[in-house]
Structure formats: C-alpha cells, structure tokens
Design a binder for these strands. Structure first.
Lengths: 341, 341
DNA sequence: TAGTATCTTGTAAGCGTTTACACGGAAACG
DNA sequence: CGTTTCCGTGTAAACGCTTACAAGATACTA
C-alpha cells in the first residue's frame, strides 16, 4: 500500500504494524496453532493494510514449501502436451500451487541439468512427461526421495510411479471396431517405435487380428513418426499396394489427417472407399471433415490424476501412491463405414 | 556425486573441495573479474566433481537474478496461447531463463495477487498476455519499475510497452481479398468486442468496404465470442438471411470452423457456394477440408519478440524499449473462390 | 626503492523467511 | 495452594547465496 516504490513490506513491517514479533506473524501466515485469535486477527489486518505477500524464495530457503511444482516436457509441439498441461493447471490451481515449465527440446543433457536445479529448492515436486524409457537421472530423484510422477510412461519395471493410458487396449479396441464393421485388410501406421505407447498400440492391433483369426500381413504395417507428413506417405504407400486395405488404423490422429489427404489425392472418398480410425482424440479430430473416429486418450485427466498423485506424495512422502493406467475409449464419428460387399 | 542422499552440495562444499573460500567460488560462478585463471579452473573442477548446481532461491534472495520470468495467461483454452508460449520458450531457452506459468482463468482478483507474488522475488520480469484493457495492477508494476511486457494488447495510451499484431490491417486485407474475388455481400462474425483486437478487425472490415464503395449492412455483422459454437450460430443466422452473404469473414479461425459446419448443414459447399476466410492461422487451419484461407497472426513471433524485449529490459531497466506491432499476412488456401456470376 | 594502484582472496553481513528453543503466564491437577 | 502442563509469544539460528569491505600480494610508477 503505502510503501515507497521498490520497497516492499516484509514480515518485520507486518510485525511492527500489528505490534507483535515476526515469529508470531510467521505463525499466523502458516496457520500454526498457539496463536490467540485476537492476535491472529490483528496480524491479518496488518497484512491487508500493507498488502503484504510473503517472499516465496525466502520461504522455501528457510525450509518451508515453495508451493511450486516443475513440469518437464520435451516440447510444446504436438498439441498433445497442451491438453496434459491443462489438466495439471486445473489441479494445481485448486491446490494453490504454481507451475514451473521446463522444455528440454529433446536434449538429454539439458534434462538432467534441469532436474538438478529443480530439485535444489526450486520446486516441491516434479512431473515428467516421458514417453520414452526412463533416463538415468531418475535414479538421483529416487535416492534423493524427491517427489515425482511420470506421465505417459509405461516402464517395464513396476517401480516407477506413473500415470498412463491403456494404449494396448485402445489399439485392440480400434482394430476390433474395424473388424466388427467387416474389414479384413486393415492397414496400420505405427508411431515412433522407441516409445512404449507406440509399440503398445501395435501390440493391440496384432492381438485383435489374432483373436479374430486374421493373419498378420507385414505389408499392411507402415512405419510412421506421429507427424502428419509421415501419415501422408504411409497412406499413399498403403493405397498403392496391389491389394490395398479397406480400412486404416493410424497410431495417432495427426497422422490420420495425413492419410485422409493421401486418400483424397487418390480420388478416394472417406469413409465410402476407405475407413480411417485414429488415436488420441485431439481437438482437431472433430473439426476435420469427415470427423475422425478415434480412440480417446484422456490426456487432460492424465494431467489431473498425475498432479493429484504428486501433491499427495509431497504432503506425505510415505503415501501409498501407485501407478495408474487410465482407460481409453472409442469415439465414433464419421470416418468409418461397414465394408461394402 | 558422492553425497549422502538428501544432502546436496552447497557452495561451501565446493569451496572446501577446491581449497578456496566460498566467496571465490561465488565469484567464479558469476563470472566476475579478479579471479586467477588457475583458481577458476580449480573451482570449476570441484563443481563438476560434486555435481554442484546453485540454489536459485538463495541466489535471488541474496540479490542476484532469479533467472526466471513469469508468464501471466488467462487460460490454456484456445490453442492461441500455445503458439505464443512456444515463441517465448524458444527465446528463453537461448537466454538460459526459466519460465513460471500463471493462469488466471479470467479471475481479476487472482491476477493481481499473482502479480504480487511474482514481483516479490519469484521472477526477474513478467510477460502478460492481456487482450483486454490494462488492469490496475499494472500501475504497481510501473511505479515499482518492475520489468514487464504486454502481449497482444492494444492499449490506447502509448505508455505501455507491448507487442501486438496489426489486427486492423489484417481485417482490411481479408475483406479486400474477398472484394477482389468479386464478393459484395460479405458477412462478418465479430470476436468478443471488449477486446481491442476484435474491434480492430471489425474496423478493418468496415474500412475496406468503405474504400470500395460498398455500403455497410449491419445485418451482415453477427456477434461472436471467438469460440466455435458461436461461429456455428452466426453461420446459420447469416445463411438464413433473405439475401445471404456470398462470403464470410470470421474474426478467428475457430469460429470459421463453426461457420463451415453451418454451411455444410445447409447443404452448401465450400468454397463453391460460400467463401470463408478466418483470422489467426492456427494449426488446424490447414488440417480442415477445405483448408482455410486466413490472415496469419505471427503469434510465435510475438512471443519471441516480447521475450527479447523483456530480457533487454531486465538487463538494462533504462533501455529504450518501444512497443512493436507485427504485420499480419494473408494465407491463401482453399476456402475462397471468385464470386460466380 | 619507496609509494601507489591493481589484482586476488578471505570474511562478514544481509536477503526474508521458518523452525527450534526459551520463558512468563494461565489453566489444570492433586 | 504448590506443582505440572499447556498456551502464547519473543528471540536466535539457519537456509545458501551475493556483495560490500578488508587485507595481503603483486605490479607499476617516478
């Protein structure tokens, strides 16, 4: 309020204003016991009058919480992170936490440096979006008992605390849906296969074929990298086969758009001549024409759940927080049709 | 490296390891003069050996930089912030700064509380994405001489340091393009009109009509709110007019998608029966079918430019940093056609 | 070669909090 | 009514760093 510009009220100013000691002010600010109600009120008034806001740096240096959690991302590229971020944001806001955003741009080295600074006081906990296999610095987090949660990471060892989606089941469901529509020659465009989620989706596809007595044809599987151009290329390749597929399952929506483009290029109508199903259910999926049938991955919810888990862990490091796999769901829109006979 | 779990090396540990005093270590860490080269090397080695990373909290408490800048956003809703964020991230990474993300969810009260905590040591500077008119707390930033830059804010007073886009010119260009294609009855769907960018786009539209001797017809202007459903509603309304428009200019891309939907609902083909032009050029614009012709707003560049301005301001508070308006550009895709006669 | 300026380093103080501890007074107990 | 317990508050120390300031070593000047 009435402070000279540049000079901001400290806990001492509040103490003087309220006629108590700084220790008492701290106790009030932290909702500690052993403070007389009138004193508490007086302090609160002084806080209001001075417009006092505690310095978080000092607070966390002195051993308190920083009320900040870190989020480590590869990048802001896909539109995939945005949705997770939204979930995290929602949950953090409710808990009165702030968010520190770190993007690594896929540089391994940077990641571990980040993890270093983050754990040195910057944040109370860490969320990592790590679709690939666990890097070494997780060890240091573990031994240091620093609270962290992995998002979208399906590590082999059950030791990691993570939240992910049922990629395998989703892949199975997508394939099963197409089979249910009568399709037998079903193309598959993979994601980047060093990511667990990509291999899981492929696994689901193969399993569904198996369960339905359809033999696996390697020709129908085309490698992609989760980006649109690779979808286009894959689409073109699959449609040029001597015996092209009547339906294609794309490991994500963005590549599905590429496949759509390739089909249109060839003069094929969707879904009349070719059924397409995607994975993720990003916002665009319902904006394209025809609207894309896809497997919904609950990204926002993953963000929310992970955040809740992390906050729980921060509150009680011994808490029994276990990995969670959230279910995917089939979203039927307009890009698939029963096989014409 | 070899620290007991939970105990992290401090500057004192480094000093002991290197056989110098902690003051010297600090000097080395901050690249100060007056350190003998051999000493510097010895300290750096000790730093490496111990895997030391400075505690940012302590550092900024003691008067140094926090190497953090804050970003205040309304929310992560539109896909619009993502792109700005990407630009910011790029620039920050280069400058070795970290990002603190604050979302207000449009709650005025929260904003000013945030600004309070941010300026109390949390960050060295602040970026605000503020399409609406400048709120009161900016005054406190100003008197406190805290470095900040506004993004996408076209305030009246030239006092604010901000970076924005040429919304008026963009609106003009879009309209002019449609007129050039022969269209005379051109619908317009507004954005939320309490935002400067929305009124500017409308202004550009009117100006272009004027310049071409086309009289302004209020019936052709329909209020929207930048979200897809309002585009749909607007599209339906415009197309139901006794004399419907042959082209529509939407104040942003997302609403344009809604208009497309409305047109399809009515059995109209795009661009055959109706030309549509958007504004923003978000990622989806090139994914829909037909691909959307639109006015590109250089969001990522806005983020980058604003960040550079802010960093400059942090480095030298007296720097002559002036507001910047970045040009928009017409991106021609497939959603507009010359008027059929 | 004495005197001064410059380099190099160490030490102390302080940034704004929290937390452990101390101490007087009120309440509870026998 | 003396003793014990708990309550309410103040004070000191610590968190890990930066930045004056001091002081010894070294280089430069006349």
């Amino acid at each position: 309020m009435n402070d000279t510009p540049g000079n901001v009220a400290t806990i001492f100013d509040v103490a003087r204003e309220a006629g108590v000691s700084y220790g008492t002010v701290s106790r009030v600010l932290n909702n500690r016991d052993h403070v007389k109600p009138e004193t508490r009120a007086a302090v609160m008034q002084a806080v209001d009058r001075l417009g006092f806001v505690a310095n978080q740096q000092a607070r966390s240096l002195a051993g308190g919480r920083s009320q900040v959690i870190g989020l480590l991302l590869h990048g802001l590229n896909t539109g995939y992170s945005d949705e997770i971020l939204r979930g995290i944001d929602t949950e953090l806001e409710a808990a009165n936490y702030d968010l520190m955003l770190y993007t690594t741009h896929r540089r391994k080295l940077k990641e571990s440096a980040y993890v270093g600074t983050i754990t040195r006081g910057m944040a109370d906990g860490l969320l990592l979006v790590l679709p690939r296999n666990s890097p070494a610095y997780l060890d240091s987090l573990r031994t240091r008992e620093f609270p962290y949660i992995l998002i979208d990471h399906q590590g082999r060892g059950g030791t990691e605390r993570s939240v992910g989606a049922a990629n395998r089941q989703g892949g199975y469901d997508a394939t099963q849906y197409l089979i249910g529509l009568g399709h037998r020659r079903i193309g598959f465009v993979t994601g980047t296969l060093d990511l667990a989620c990509a291999t899981d989706r492929l696994g689901g596809y193969r399993r569904a074929l198996d369960d339905n007595g359809i033999s696996f044809d390697p020709q129908l599987v085309f490698p992609g990298d989760f980006l649109q151009p690779s979808g286009f290329i894959a689409g073109r390749a699959l449609l040029s086969l001597p015996q092209p597929p009547t339906a294609v399952f794309s490991s994500n929506d963005v590549m599905a758009f590429g496949i759509m483009e390739a089909a249109r290029d060839r003069g094929l109508s969707i879904p009349g001549d070719l059924s397409i199903i995607g994975f993720d259910d990003i916002a665009q999926a319902s904006l394209v024409y025809p609207q894309l049938t896809t497997i919904r991955q609950p990204l926002e919810e993953m963000g929310r759940v992970a955040t809740r888990m992390l906050l729980e862990l921060i509150a009680d490091p011994q808490a029994d927080v276990r990995s969670v796999t959230l279910p995917t769901s089939l979203v039927v829109r307009g890009s698939c049709l029963p096989l014409r006979t």
